[in-house]
Protein backbone atom coordinates (compact mmCIF):
# COMPACT_ATOMS: atom_id res chain seq x y z
CA UNK A 1 0.00 0.00 0.00
CA UNK A 2 1.28 3.43 -0.94
CA UNK A 3 1.95 5.75 1.94
CA UNK A 4 -1.30 7.52 2.78
CA UNK A 5 -1.19 11.26 2.54
CA UNK A 6 -2.03 12.87 5.90
CA UNK A 7 -5.72 13.64 6.00
CA UNK A 8 -5.02 17.22 7.05
CA UNK A 9 -3.20 17.74 3.75
CA UNK A 10 -5.93 16.01 1.77
CA UNK A 11 -8.52 18.29 3.37
CA UNK A 12 -6.48 21.36 2.54
CA UNK A 13 -5.64 20.42 -1.04
CA UNK A 14 -8.85 18.89 -2.32
CA UNK A 15 -11.71 19.90 -0.03
CA UNK A 16 -13.51 22.99 1.18
CA UNK A 17 -13.20 21.65 4.71
CA UNK A 18 -14.47 24.93 6.16
CA UNK A 19 -17.86 24.05 4.66
CA UNK A 20 -18.04 20.85 6.71
CA UNK A 21 -20.03 19.25 8.29
CA UNK A 22 -21.56 17.92 5.11
CA UNK A 23 -25.31 17.79 4.71
CA UNK A 24 -25.21 14.00 4.62
CA UNK A 25 -26.73 11.81 7.32
CA UNK A 26 -24.42 10.41 10.00
CA UNK A 27 -22.52 7.45 8.61
CA UNK A 28 -23.53 8.05 4.99
CA UNK A 29 -21.15 6.42 2.51
CA UNK A 30 -20.90 9.45 0.23
CA UNK A 31 -18.14 10.85 2.42
CA UNK A 32 -16.20 7.59 2.09
CA UNK A 33 -16.46 7.74 -1.67
CA UNK A 34 -15.28 11.36 -1.70
CA UNK A 35 -12.24 10.48 0.33
CA UNK A 36 -11.46 7.44 -1.83
CA UNK A 37 -11.82 9.37 -5.09
CA UNK A 38 -9.75 12.36 -3.96
CA UNK A 39 -7.03 10.08 -2.61
CA UNK A 40 -7.03 8.16 -5.88
CA UNK A 41 -6.76 11.39 -7.86
CA UNK A 42 -3.94 12.49 -5.60
CA UNK A 43 -2.10 9.21 -6.10
CA UNK A 44 -2.18 9.55 -9.89
CA UNK A 45 0.06 12.58 -9.52
CA UNK A 46 -1.88 14.40 -12.23
CA UNK A 47 -2.51 18.11 -11.58
CA UNK A 48 -5.81 18.67 -9.73
CA UNK A 49 -6.90 21.34 -12.22
CA UNK A 50 -6.84 18.71 -14.98
CA UNK A 51 -9.75 16.94 -13.29
CA UNK A 52 -13.40 17.84 -13.78
CA UNK A 53 -16.24 16.21 -11.92
CA UNK A 54 -19.42 15.69 -13.91
CA UNK A 55 -22.17 15.31 -11.36
CA UNK A 56 -25.85 14.50 -11.53
CA UNK A 57 -28.59 14.65 -8.94
CA UNK A 58 -29.04 12.69 -5.76
CA UNK A 59 -27.71 13.10 -2.24
CA UNK A 60 -24.22 12.94 -3.72
CA UNK A 61 -25.17 15.72 -6.17
CA UNK A 62 -23.89 18.52 -3.98
CA UNK A 63 -20.39 17.08 -3.57
CA UNK A 64 -19.27 20.12 -5.53
CA UNK A 65 -19.99 22.16 -2.42
CA UNK A 66 -17.22 20.29 -0.62
CA UNK A 67 -14.74 19.38 -3.34
CA UNK A 68 -12.13 21.83 -4.54
CA UNK A 69 -12.32 20.64 -8.13
CA UNK A 70 -13.90 21.95 -11.31
CA UNK A 71 -17.44 20.75 -11.48
CA UNK A 72 -20.16 20.38 -14.06
CA UNK A 73 -23.57 19.80 -12.60
CA UNK A 74 -26.57 19.70 -14.87
CA UNK A 75 -29.37 17.28 -14.33
CA UNK A 76 -30.41 13.83 -13.26
CA UNK A 77 -29.13 10.91 -15.31
CA UNK A 78 -27.28 12.78 -18.03
CA UNK A 79 -23.84 12.57 -16.46
CA UNK A 80 -22.33 10.12 -18.98
CA UNK A 81 -23.67 12.24 -21.87
CA UNK A 82 -22.35 15.56 -20.58
CA UNK A 83 -19.07 13.89 -19.66
CA UNK A 84 -18.90 12.58 -23.24
CA UNK A 85 -19.36 16.09 -24.64
CA UNK A 86 -16.79 17.52 -22.27
CA UNK A 87 -14.18 14.84 -22.92
CA UNK A 88 -14.61 15.08 -26.69
CA UNK A 89 -14.32 18.85 -26.65
CA UNK A 90 -11.47 18.82 -24.14
CA UNK A 91 -9.42 15.63 -24.44
CA UNK A 92 -6.81 17.19 -22.13
CA UNK A 93 -9.14 16.90 -19.12
CA UNK A 94 -9.57 13.94 -16.80
CA UNK A 95 -13.32 13.57 -16.53
CA UNK A 96 -14.75 11.89 -13.44
CA UNK A 97 -18.42 11.06 -13.95
CA UNK A 98 -20.04 10.71 -10.54
CA UNK A 99 -23.38 8.95 -10.45
CA UNK A 100 -25.76 7.29 -8.08
CA UNK A 101 -27.40 3.95 -8.78
CA UNK A 102 -30.73 5.46 -9.79
CA UNK A 103 -28.99 8.22 -11.71
CA UNK A 104 -26.77 5.86 -13.65
CA UNK A 105 -28.97 2.86 -14.27
CA UNK A 106 -32.55 4.18 -14.36
CA UNK A 107 -32.89 7.65 -15.87
CA UNK A 108 -29.36 7.60 -17.26
CA UNK A 109 -29.12 3.96 -18.26
CA UNK A 110 -29.14 4.70 -21.95
CA UNK A 111 -26.37 7.28 -21.64
CA UNK A 112 -24.33 4.92 -19.47
CA UNK A 113 -24.36 1.99 -21.87
CA UNK A 114 -23.57 4.20 -24.85
CA UNK A 115 -20.65 5.88 -23.11
CA UNK A 116 -19.40 2.39 -22.27
CA UNK A 117 -19.94 1.23 -25.85
CA UNK A 118 -17.92 4.14 -27.23
CA UNK A 119 -15.08 3.33 -24.83
CA UNK A 120 -14.58 7.04 -24.23
CA UNK A 121 -11.91 7.86 -21.66
CA UNK A 122 -14.15 8.73 -18.73
CA UNK A 123 -13.97 7.42 -15.19
CA UNK A 124 -17.49 6.55 -14.09
CA UNK A 125 -17.92 6.21 -10.34
CA UNK A 126 -21.27 4.75 -9.39
CA UNK A 127 -22.14 5.15 -5.78
CA UNK A 128 -24.59 2.33 -5.23
CA UNK A 129 -26.60 2.80 -2.06
CA UNK A 130 -29.49 0.81 -3.53
CA UNK A 131 -32.03 3.59 -3.14
CA UNK A 132 -33.08 7.13 -4.03
CA UNK A 133 -31.94 8.66 -0.76
CA UNK A 134 -32.52 12.33 -1.49
CA UNK A 135 -36.18 11.88 -2.37
CA UNK A 136 -36.72 9.76 0.69
CA UNK A 137 -36.03 6.11 -0.12
CA UNK A 138 -37.87 5.00 -3.25
CA UNK A 139 -36.71 1.79 -4.92
CA UNK A 140 -34.09 1.99 -7.63
CA UNK A 141 -32.99 -0.53 -10.26
CA UNK A 142 -30.32 -1.53 -7.72
CA UNK A 143 -32.65 -2.19 -4.79
CA UNK A 144 -32.22 -5.79 -3.69
CA UNK A 145 -35.04 -8.23 -4.32
CA UNK A 146 -37.40 -8.31 -1.36
CA UNK A 147 -36.02 -5.17 0.31
CA UNK A 148 -38.36 -2.39 1.34
CA UNK A 149 -38.62 1.12 -0.05
CA UNK A 150 -41.23 3.84 0.31
CA UNK A 151 -42.48 2.83 -3.13
CA UNK A 152 -41.98 -0.87 -2.43
CA UNK A 153 -43.93 -1.11 0.83
CA UNK A 154 -44.56 -4.82 0.26
CA UNK A 155 -41.02 -5.58 -0.79
CA UNK A 156 -39.08 -5.14 -4.01
CA UNK A 157 -40.43 -7.38 -6.74
CA UNK A 158 -38.05 -6.39 -9.54
CA UNK A 159 -34.64 -8.02 -9.74
CA UNK A 160 -31.73 -5.58 -9.36
CA UNK A 161 -29.29 -4.67 -12.08
CA UNK A 162 -25.83 -6.14 -11.85
CA UNK A 163 -24.22 -2.84 -12.76
CA UNK A 164 -20.82 -4.32 -13.49
CA UNK A 165 -22.22 -6.97 -15.83
CA UNK A 166 -24.25 -4.27 -17.53
CA UNK A 167 -21.14 -2.15 -18.12
CA UNK A 168 -19.09 -5.10 -19.27
CA UNK A 169 -21.77 -6.17 -21.70
CA UNK A 170 -22.06 -2.64 -23.03
CA UNK A 171 -18.36 -2.49 -23.83
CA UNK A 172 -16.66 -0.76 -20.90
CA UNK A 173 -12.99 -1.72 -20.90
CA UNK A 174 -12.40 -1.38 -17.16
CA UNK A 175 -15.06 -2.68 -14.78
CA UNK A 176 -14.70 -3.07 -11.05
CA UNK A 177 -16.71 -3.24 -7.86
CA UNK A 178 -15.65 -2.36 -4.37
CA UNK A 179 -17.24 -1.19 -1.13
CA UNK A 180 -17.03 1.74 1.24
CA UNK A 181 -15.77 -0.62 3.94
CA UNK A 182 -12.79 -1.69 1.86
CA UNK A 183 -11.29 1.77 1.57
CA UNK A 184 -7.74 0.72 0.74
CA UNK A 185 -8.93 -1.41 -2.15
CA UNK A 186 -11.36 1.30 -3.25
CA UNK A 187 -8.60 3.90 -3.50
CA UNK A 188 -6.44 1.49 -5.47
CA UNK A 189 -9.22 0.54 -7.88
CA UNK A 190 -10.33 4.13 -8.49
CA UNK A 191 -6.73 5.12 -9.23
CA UNK A 192 -6.43 2.29 -11.74
CA UNK A 193 -9.75 3.34 -13.27
CA UNK A 194 -8.54 6.92 -13.71
CA UNK A 195 -5.31 5.73 -15.27
CA UNK A 196 -7.13 3.32 -17.56
CA UNK A 197 -7.25 4.68 -21.14
CA UNK A 198 -10.90 4.05 -21.95
CA UNK A 199 -14.30 3.89 -20.32
CA UNK A 200 -13.76 2.77 -16.74
CA UNK A 201 -16.61 2.01 -14.39
CA UNK A 202 -16.25 1.49 -10.66
CA UNK A 203 -19.30 0.55 -8.66
CA UNK A 204 -18.86 1.39 -5.01
CA UNK A 205 -21.35 -0.35 -2.75
CA UNK A 206 -22.29 2.20 -0.15
CA UNK A 207 -24.35 2.46 2.99
CA UNK A 208 -27.45 4.63 3.34
CA UNK A 209 -28.08 4.09 7.03
CA UNK A 210 -30.79 6.62 7.73
CA UNK A 211 -33.10 5.97 4.80
CA UNK A 212 -32.42 2.50 3.39
CA UNK A 213 -30.97 1.05 6.56
CA UNK A 214 -33.87 2.07 8.76
CA UNK A 215 -36.53 1.05 6.29
CA UNK A 216 -35.04 -2.44 6.07
CA UNK A 217 -34.24 -2.62 9.80
CA UNK A 218 -30.55 -2.93 9.07
CA UNK A 219 -29.67 -0.67 11.97
CA UNK A 220 -27.21 2.21 11.91
CA UNK A 221 -24.14 2.84 9.74
CA UNK A 222 -22.03 0.51 11.84
CA UNK A 223 -24.36 -2.45 11.46
CA UNK A 224 -24.88 -1.68 7.79
CA UNK A 225 -21.13 -1.77 7.19
CA UNK A 226 -20.91 -5.04 9.12
CA UNK A 227 -23.63 -6.50 6.96
CA UNK A 228 -22.01 -5.13 3.81
CA UNK A 229 -18.72 -6.69 4.83
CA UNK A 230 -20.37 -10.01 5.63
CA UNK A 231 -21.91 -10.09 2.18
CA UNK A 232 -18.66 -9.16 0.45
CA UNK A 233 -16.87 -11.85 -1.52
CA UNK A 234 -13.64 -11.30 -3.43
CA UNK A 235 -13.56 -12.16 -7.09
CA UNK A 236 -11.05 -14.94 -6.43
CA UNK A 237 -13.30 -16.53 -3.83
CA UNK A 238 -16.36 -16.03 -6.00
CA UNK A 239 -14.80 -18.16 -8.69
CA UNK A 240 -14.99 -21.13 -6.33
CA UNK A 241 -18.61 -20.54 -5.40
CA UNK A 242 -21.82 -21.75 -7.03
CA UNK A 243 -24.34 -19.25 -8.45
CA UNK A 244 -26.66 -20.29 -5.63
CA UNK A 245 -24.04 -19.41 -3.03
CA UNK A 246 -23.33 -16.10 -4.74
CA UNK A 247 -26.94 -14.89 -4.54
CA UNK A 248 -27.13 -11.61 -2.70
CA UNK A 249 -23.37 -11.40 -2.32
CA UNK A 250 -21.30 -8.33 -3.18
CA UNK A 251 -18.50 -9.59 -5.38
CA UNK A 252 -15.57 -7.18 -5.30
CA UNK A 253 -12.59 -6.90 -7.58
CA UNK A 254 -11.61 -5.91 -11.09
CA UNK A 255 -13.82 -7.81 -13.53
CA UNK A 256 -12.37 -6.49 -16.75
CA UNK A 257 -9.30 -4.54 -17.76
CA UNK A 258 -8.54 -4.41 -21.46
CA UNK A 259 -6.99 -1.82 -23.74
CA UNK A 260 -9.05 -1.15 -26.83
CA UNK A 261 -9.32 1.83 -29.23
CA UNK A 262 -10.51 4.84 -27.27
CA UNK A 263 -13.16 7.02 -28.89
CA UNK A 264 -11.69 10.49 -28.29
CA UNK A 265 -8.31 9.38 -29.58
CA UNK A 266 -9.88 7.77 -32.64
CA UNK A 267 -11.91 10.89 -33.38
CA UNK A 268 -8.88 13.16 -33.18
CA UNK A 269 -7.07 10.86 -35.60
CA UNK A 270 -9.87 11.64 -38.04
CA UNK A 271 -9.50 15.35 -37.38
CA UNK A 272 -5.77 15.15 -38.02
CA UNK A 273 -6.45 13.33 -41.27
CA UNK A 274 -9.13 15.57 -42.74
CA UNK A 275 -8.37 18.95 -41.18
CA UNK A 276 -8.03 21.81 -43.61
CA UNK A 277 -6.30 24.63 -41.74
CA UNK A 278 -6.87 27.10 -44.57
CA UNK A 279 -10.61 26.72 -44.48
CA UNK A 280 -11.93 28.36 -41.40
CA UNK A 281 -15.39 28.95 -42.72
Amino acid sequence: MAKLKPLTELRKEHFHFSRFPTTYCPGCGIGNVLQAVTRAIDETGRPPESFTFAVGIGCYGNIGNYLDFDELRLSHGRVPAMATGLKLARPDLNVIAMMGDGDATAIGGNHLIHAARRNIDITAIILNNHTYGMTGGQYSPATRLGDYATTAPYGMLEPAFDICKLAEGAGATFVARTTTFRMVQTIDIVRRAIEHPGFALVEIDSQCPVIYGRMNRWGDAVSMLKKQNALTVTLEKAKTMTPEELKGKIVVGIFKQAVEPEFTGEYYKVINRVRRPQDAS
Partner: peptide, 17 residues
Protein backbone atom coordinates in the same frame (compact mmCIF):
# COMPACT_ATOMS: atom_id res chain seq x y z
CA UNK B 1 -25.76 10.72 -29.37
CA UNK B 2 -28.17 8.05 -28.17
CA UNK B 3 -31.10 10.48 -28.00
CA UNK B 4 -31.98 14.18 -27.85
CA UNK B 5 -31.49 14.29 -24.09
CA UNK B 6 -27.98 13.02 -24.58
CA UNK B 7 -27.38 15.42 -27.47
CA UNK B 8 -28.06 18.53 -25.48
CA UNK B 9 -26.20 17.14 -22.44
CA UNK B 10 -23.14 16.57 -24.60
CA UNK B 11 -23.51 20.09 -26.01
CA UNK B 12 -23.57 21.44 -22.46
CA UNK B 13 -20.46 19.41 -21.62
CA UNK B 14 -18.58 20.79 -24.61
CA UNK B 15 -19.77 24.33 -23.92
CA UNK B 16 -18.57 24.07 -20.33
CA UNK B 17 -15.25 22.96 -21.76
Amino acid sequence: MEDELGSLSAVVGASAG
